[in-house]
Structure formats: structure tokens, C-alpha cells
Design a protein around this nucleic acid. Sequence first.
RNA 1: GCGGGUGUGGCGAAAUUGGUAGACGCGCUAGACUUAGGAUCUAGUGCCGCGAGGCGUGGGGGUUCGAGUCCCUCCACCCGCACCA
Length: 939
Amino acid sequence: MDYQPRDIEQRWRKYWEENEIYKVEVDHNKPKYYVLDMFPYPSGAGLHVGHPLGYIASDIFARYKRLKGFNVLHPMGYDSFGLPAEQYAIQTGIHPAISTEKNINRYREQLENLGFSFDWSREVRTSDPSYYKWTQWIFMQLFKHYYDQDADKAMPVETLAERFAKDGNANVKAVCDDDTPAISAADWNGMSEKEQNEFLLHYRLTFPEESFVNWCPALGTVLSNDEVKDGVSERGGHPVERKLMKQWSMRITAYADKLLEGLNHIDWPESLKEQQRNWIGRSQGASVRFALEQDADTKIEVFTTRVDTIYGVTFMCLAPEHDLVDQLTTPEQQEEIEKYIKWTASRSERERMSEVKQVTGAFTGSYCINPFNGEKVPIYIADYVLAGYGTGAVMAVPSGDQRDWNFATHFGLPIIPILDAQKDIETAADPTKEGKYINSGIIDGMTYDEAIPTLTNWLEERGLGKGKIQYRIRNAVFSRQRYWGEPVPAYWKDGVPYLIDESELPLVLPAVDKYLPTEDGDPPLGRAEGWKYQDQYEYELSTMPGWAGSSWYWYRYMDSQNDERFASKDAVQYWQAVDLYIGGSEHAVGHLLYSRFWNHFLYDLGLVPEKEYAKKLINQGMIQGVIESIFMEKSEAKDKRFVSADLLDQYPDTEWAQMPVHVDFVSDYGSEQSHLDKDGIEKFKEWRPAFANATFITNDKGQIVTKSEVGKMSKRYFNVVNPDDVIDRYGTDCFRMYEMFLGPIEQAKPWDTKGIDGVIKFLRRFWSLFFDGNGEFAVSQETPSKEEMKILHTTIKKVTEDIERFNFNTCVSAFMIATNDLKKMKCNKAAVLKELVVLMAPFAPHINEELWHRLGEEGSVHKASFPEYDEKYLKEDSITYPIAINGKTRATADFPADASKADIEKAAQELDTMQKWLEGKTIRKVIVVPGRMVNIVVG
RNA sequence: GCGGGUGUGGCGAAAUUGGUAGACGCGCUAGACUUAGGAUCUAGUGCCGCGAGGCGUGGGGGUUCGAGUCCCUCCACCCGCACCA
């Protein structure tokens, strides 16, 4: 009987469902293991091509852990709030809930087609009120808490109010807005309720504040930096302006240190941790205040990580947007400064970033005074200084910083050496910390480690500065002017936000007539009728961002039906945290940072047991596609010309446009020889009837050579490979094994099916081990030979070790080798095959379930226990050693496994085959590495 | 400019602590079986050379008896970024 994947797969999937094979409950008699995938956004295009890779890997690991006796939580759900559904609603008027439901059903089908072992009874959807009830609840907790630096955790705002009533805020060490005024107890007690509530917003972990946003009037919405290209919206090309808007914000800065520190305790890819560290950007340094020459009371504050270089300061640089620029500009310099400011305002961030080599700036005409030596320091503005970071002002040290050096050289400013170890500062800056200070007043002759405290103390004694830690992470804007998101459970009274009562959760998204902003520019919720708290106070009109729902979802899986709590205490206590989390690295500084922030907060409240919710994280690489394009003449002519890419240089005067073609038409797709042959050209004409009469200038082989590029798989490039098609042809098991066989999961790679035949061949061969020449199922009950046991146990060892290291590609190789070896020996011993079936079941769950039952075993193979290897079958009688002379292998020889080093050393030199190499040479040394090799060193 | 990563046959890739580089698969070559095969099986396949042998893990240098692996240096490509003072 031939291997028929489709029959087998359908039958066993049904069996698993009927017998609830993958259902999991809290079980205190078993150790738990939690395998989590990043849940998908259900887009209209179907399951994203990058997803199966990660999902297959996590499924294999989940199945493996189950076989190893763990109680495995392996759930799946949908991150179902998002912009595409809203845009679709704007176009069609269809409620996003309806289109989302449809997409989810499609995803569910595709996921089931991949044979995953999810416990679907735990499915979550972030857009479901029973889910977002708890997203809103967590938001409320954030509003109700502030970050207390003495307790080093979040504390209830009520306790803060009590302290204000007693002592004011002078002794409160808490994370708050920079402009929080100092108040006394009397001040506080004299405030009205509204004033008190307003004041507390300076401390709450989520709070409304005026912040600049990219506002696009035409689209009536706020855009991310990414959606703005050259000052216009990416979609539609509408103008975008900077606008101040009241936005909810999350005080993630309060957790900056904990988020940094936590990275030391989790097993995440080092590169991803580094990205988060850079994003948080903790730098230790000092702030220094430079008084103006013209007005000693006005001071420019700078932040520097190298306060030790302060005697090398030869100019000061402000961001063009700095508050003091107007005041500093002298009448003579007015024109130049204005011109420069105008010029920088016209430059996009992209331009400012890419043109780093060009030195630009302008002199304000004013000076400030270096507090250490009283020197006059000229003040410039330059757009390499960013208004948004630190104080928007930099003290420039040309001898120690290359950018400052470039600027000084360009404007003819002095360059003062400050360390005796600095070299060649005439040609470039030298940022060294080595050596002793020179030209440096109070720190002359000191080293770096001595200088820093000396300077900081000096500054602090005089109130001119202090040691300071600066972060570059900013509070996270939490409002979206959109419909399809969680409503914020707050209302406005007298211009101050209040929370609704917890008993009123969930605050369900109201119906609206249109999904567009109102005429007044309010978000879509402004259209909802009666959208008022107790019919009098307007609810918050913005909704939450996409990352809200995904910042805690792993807890909901633990107890997804709970109405009383986000998850029961029991469930959270049992499942604790995610043991293995798999997803893409594109979430490095978005989801993976925000979710850690929320988790730290929930931990502070005692609601969850671990500070870090994901102990181990693996990034699966993106599977890319190949974009194949042909060249079409740019002309007004009705019938265009197309040219083979290898003939382009014969038409130097013609302009050609690149046009993507469907990859199905392309021969040798993805290679340098990729081309449309005669057949392909016909298919292309059929596909694009407008070009039926076009001219095709082919090369001498009659081909139109195409240009191949690796890039995103996307509908617009006609290069999407749908997993369903591959599965229809080869079966789920083959698809799963092939994706694993492609290479390491972390690696990005273009999708191609070139090697899939090897995997299907292997599965057929594996299947044939269980059948005789007539196609009848036939296994032998005989005791396996020593040789057969060796193959089995080598494979068990290899696969066990490789699964633990997530080297799934080499596991597949091991299965292939074992199958080939057993096939050669015509081994059909049930005792060997049964173990192999369990071993392979995580990778190819269906075929192995079938074979398990044919072997007469009870129950599901997925409830069996993973085989253990026995060292005794792995021992060799003899070991083949390579024998080298000066590192160059010249012969091999077998020695008994228990031979001593001395025996091997002696025997190796006496080998007949070695004599011709050793003739006339003097042996200086013989190196024997037991079990490995012999190297004879000759003179 | 900064940060991170990658570089091994025609292709996807293997290679515990430095120890026979290229496992496994694709492709290719030859053969077997077939009416036929894009099915199956067998053998071969890093490069140069008839051969002995030589050369080979992006380039150059170093440490070592021995380097894909460790160190220095240069190059190429990819990803991220908010010029982070």
C-alpha cells in the first residue's frame, strides 16, 4: 500500500479532535511547560508566510515536551484589533467585527491544515469584549498607580494623596513629569477635587498629556513616523503637520531600569536584548549649566557622558528648535540664523540622518561661560543636535568627539588637547579615556577615574550641575484616533479624566454610522450616539493602540473563560510564565518591550508570579519570496516592447520600466538564469491581455531573461506561495518536515520548493519499512540485531540532543539516515520501528499516528513516552583514527576502543602505510587525542 | 554616523570543547528495471591534475602539532535606528 498522506491526515485529525487529545488542564501531578507563539493578526490575505515556520517549530517542541511527560500549555488566538479591518470598513461599510470573524475562520482552517496541537478551547481574540474587559481593567490599574522610587515599585495613588495631605510632595520620591511643581501639605489641602485630580496626573502610570503627533488633516488621523514620507502621508500623499494633541501616555520610563535589568535574567537572543538596551538607552553622565555671558542668571543646561572633557570645550551647540535661540541671536547674526532654521525645518528626519558628512550650522553671536575656567564659549546652532533628546544642547569638545571635530574644523574653531594620550588630534578626534589630563585646571594630572568624581563634586557644591542618568526611551503614546480598538474606560468631567467603575466593564465598543473621524476632527467614537457616562460625561473618544491587547494575552490562555478575573489565581500560579516563546524579531522594541513593561507592573501589584514572563525566546527568520520582473519599454505606444534582461545594454537610449511578473510563468525561478520561455511568454500574454500584441525581444535562446530579487512575499509581486497548495500536493507531514529541513529556524531565507521532493521520498521510504513487497503491512516480532539497535539508539541520541538545541533541520537528517540504514538492512522489526515512530511523531504527527495504530498500539502516539537512548548500544568495538603528519591526514587505522594512548601512539608510527611518509624524517612528537585523531609532528 | 548580524560546493546546508571540512537533501552524471517515466533502485559528484599529488570555509596576517571554529586587520552583503552627546 502506498503512502497516502491526505487520507491519513484527515482521519487522524478527526480522531484527535473527537478524543480531545490536545486538551490540557491544570494537573499538579505533572510538571508544566508553556509553549507560546506570537498570535497572528488575521489579515484578509490569509496566514502570513512567515508564520508556519515558527508555529511548526513550537508545535514540535510542545509535542516533544508532552512525550517527555510534561503538562504542556500550547494555545493559539488572534490579535484581532487592527487597522486593515478598519480601512476595509471605511471602504465597504462592513463592520470590522464581521470581516475579522471571516478572516479568523480562514486562519483557523489554515492552522488546522498544518496539524498543530493547540488546545483550541483556550482560544482568545483581543477584540472580544470578554477579553478586552481585562485589557481595560489593566489600564485602570495603571491609572490607579504611580511608581514609587523608595519602594521601587508601583503603589496606589491613594497612598500618594495621603502623603501629599500630610507633607506635600517634597519628600516623595516618585517618577513624575519633569514640570511637576513642588507643593506643601497646605497647597494640597487647599486644592479643589478637580485640582487634586489634575495634580495626580503628574504621577499616574497612564495619563493624558499634550504631545506632538503627525496629524494628517486629509485622512483625519494621526500617523506614525513610518507612515510619513517626505512630509506627506505614505498612503495618498497628503500633507502632514506637527500638531499638539491630548493623548493618553504610558509612563514606561518608570520601568526603564527594571526593563534593562530584567534582560540579564532571560534567555533571549543577544542581538534582540541589545536592541532593547539601545532603545532604553541608559547613559550615565552629568548635567552642567553654562551661564550666558550677557546674562549670568540665564543658563544653558547640557547633558554629557564625558564631563571629564569639559576643559576641551571650545563651542556650544544648540538644536535649532531650542527655546533660547531667539534670545541668543544677536542682530548681526539674525539673518543667518533665520535662514538656517528655515532650511533645517524643510529637511526631513531622513535627510538629516543620511547627510551626516555635511557640516552645517550657524553662529548665534552670543557666548556662554565655561563654569570651570571662565572661558568665553561661542554658541552655535546645528541640526546634528536633536531637540528631543536630553536638553537639546551639547557642549562641544573637538579633540574628543569626531562630529565636534568636523564642526570645529569647518568653522575654524580651536581644538584643545585634554589628555596626554590623545594622538593626532590635528587630523581626527581621539575619544580616548587613557592617560592623564592636560590643560584641564583642577583635574590636571589625574586619570579618568579620578577626574569624574572630582568634577561632579565641584559642580554639585556650587549648584552648577550634578551627576545624572539619562534615558533615551520616551513615554509611550497610548491613544489612537481610530474605531477598531479597545475603548478607554474613562470619561471626562470638567476637563479631568475619571475611570468608570470596575463593575461597568467591559466598556463595549459602540456602533457608529461611519468609521471616519467627525467633521470636528474627533475620532470615530465621536459619532456614537449617547456615548456618555451616565448620560452626562463624555467618554474618552480615542481607543487603545494595537499593542494593548497583546501585552498580557499569555495569561488569558491560562484561564480564557474566566469572568471574575483576567485568569484565576490557581491557573496563574500553576502555569507561572512562558517557558518558550517563538516569534519574529520585528517585535523587538514594540510588543516585546511593552509586554515586559505591563508584566513588571502586574508583578508589582502581586498579580503574577514572575517579573519576566518569557524565559526563553526564539526568533524565527522571515521566509522571503523571489520577485521576478521583466523590462517594458517606457513609451506612449499602444503595443509595448519587452526585452530580455541580458540584452538591456544593446538599447542604451531606450528607457525601460521594471514590471513584476507572476512567478508561476518563470522558468528557473529565483536563479540567475530565470527567464520566460516561449510557453511562459504565452502565459504572460494570457494573464495580461493588454500586452497580447506586445513585441518580445528575446535572446538567442528565445528567452526573456527576468530579473530576480529576494524580497517580501506579497500579492503585489505575484510571488506568494500558499502553504495550502503545497500541502494539497505533498501532505502536511511533508510540508512540516520540509520547512524544518530548510535550515536553522532563526535564519531568514527565500522560499523555494526545490528540495521538497527529497522529503516526500524519505517519507515514502519510511512508510515502506512497514510493508512487504506486496504492499501488505508486515513487521517482524523478532529481537533486533545489535546493528539495528545501534542505528535506533544513535538516532534517539542525536534527535533528543538536537531538539533540545532547536536544531530541527539536523533532526530531519537523522531520520533520513536512520531510514536509509534500516532500509538497506531490510529491517522490519517492530521493536525498532515502534520507537522510531514515537521519536518522529512531533515532526510528522499524522503518518506516525497511523503507523502507531497499525503496529497495534493503544491510544494516540502523542500520549506515548519519548524513547530514551541506552549508551550500551552506542559503544564501538574499534574506532577509526585519522593519522596525520604535521596536521595533514595521510592514513586511517582502526584501533580497539579501549586502546591506551601509548598503544595508539606506537601503533600509528609502525603502520605500513605510514612508512613512506615517515621515511627520512625525525619524529619530534606524537599527539593522540583519544577517540579523535593522531598527529605525528616531524622535523 | 551608530548598533546588530551574515559570509562554507552549482543550490539549501552540516561540522560538542580547536581534531578526517562539505553529513543530509536538491541538482547533475552514468547505469539497472521498464512500452514509457518527471516512478523506483544502484554508483559517482568541492576544485585543479592522467597520476602521484596539490588547493580549498569572503581577502590578508597571527597563535597552535593542528583553525570554518580563537586573535588582529581589511572587504562584501543584510537588518534596525531616534546623529543619543
